[in-house]
Design a protein around this nucleic acid. Sequence first.
DNA 1: GCCGAACCTCAACCTTCCTTCAAGTCCGTC
DNA 2: GACGGACTTGAAGGAAGGTTGAGGTTCGGC
Lengths: 149, 149
Amino acid sequence: MTHLTIGHLAERAGVATSAIRFYESKGLISSVRTTGNQRRYEQSTLRRIAFIRTAQRVGLTLEEIGAALATLPDGRTPTKSDWHRLSRAWRPRLDEQIERIERLRDRLDSCIGCGCLSLKTCALSNPDDEAGEWGTGAVFLEPQRRTAR
Amino acid sequence: MTHLTIGHLAERAGVATSAIRFYESKGLISSVRTTGNQRRYEQSTLRRIAFIRTAQRVGLTLEEIGAALATLPDGRTPTKSDWHRLSRAWRPRLDEQIERIERLRDRLDSCIGCGCLSLKTCALSNPDDEAGEWGTGAVFLEPQRRTAR
DNA sequence: GCCGAACCTCAACCTTCCTTCAAGTCCGTC
DNA sequence: GACGGACTTGAAGGAAGGTTGAGGTTCGGC
C-alpha cells in the first residue's frame, strides 16, 4: 500500500479530512487522483503533516509553513536532513518567545509589588519592546482546538 | 475633568475608539451618557483598559478578562489590591506557558538530532501533554496587530 | 449661531484556520 | 451487481477581536 486515501491519512496523521483538503487547497501538501477523482497520498505526506502541525505549535502561520515547505527539493522525497534544516530555524523563535514571556512575568512581579497597572508609570503597561514583538507569531492558537482531532 | 470622551480615552489608553466601543459592547467597561447620547468615561477606565491589554498579552481571551473584571467590587473604584489580586493569577499561567515552550524547544533539540519528525516515534509529534496544554490561551495573537493602534 | 471635528448606531467586513452541509459520485466487499 | 461507507466539490458558517463605512447627530469654539 503505497498510497493513502484521505481518510487513512487523516486517521494516521490525527487530523480531520477537512483539514487535509484545506492544507491541499493552500498548497501545503499534494496528491494524485484516481481515475474516479479521489485523492491518494504518498506516505511522505504523513511527515509533511507532522511538520505542519508542529510548526503551528511553534507559532508559524500556514503561509509561513507553506513558504518553508516550498524550499524542499521537489524532485525527491525530503530526507531527514531536509527536515532538520527547516526545524532548526524554529529554535531562535522559541527562544524569543520564552524570553518575551519571561520579561512579561518579571514585569508582572514588580508590578504586583506596586499594584499600579498605570499606563504611564508601570512597566507592564509600557511594553517598550513591543514593536519588535508583534509579528513573531502566536505560540498556541486556541480556537481550532475545539473540534479538531 | 472627571470624565473622558471616547476620543480622549482612546488616545490616553493607546487603543482605537472602535476597540473601546467593542469592549463596552462586551461589558468589559462601562460609561455614562451625556444628554446628547455621547459616552463619558471615568478616569478609572484607563486602568481597566490597561488591565485588559495586559491580560491579553498574558493570553487571556476577552471573555476570561470579562469574568475576571466581574469579580471586582461594583460599588467602588477598584483599589491597588483589587488589581493586585487579579494580576497575581496570571503568574502561574505565564509559568506554564514558558514551561510548555521550553518543552517544545527541548523536544525540538532531540528531534533535530534524530531528524525524524515521525508521527509515531518522535516526541515532538507526540505531544502527550497536549491535552492540558490547549486552552491555556494564546500568548500573542498576531492578526489584530496589523491595523491596531 | 455656525462650522468642522468628534461622536452616534448598525451592519458589513477582515483575517486565520478550519468545519459543516448539500448534493452527488466512487470503491470495495458480499 | 448492489449496497453502504468513503469520497467529491463548492459554498457557507464560525470564532476572536476588532475595523470600516454610511448616514446622521452633537459639541465646543469663534
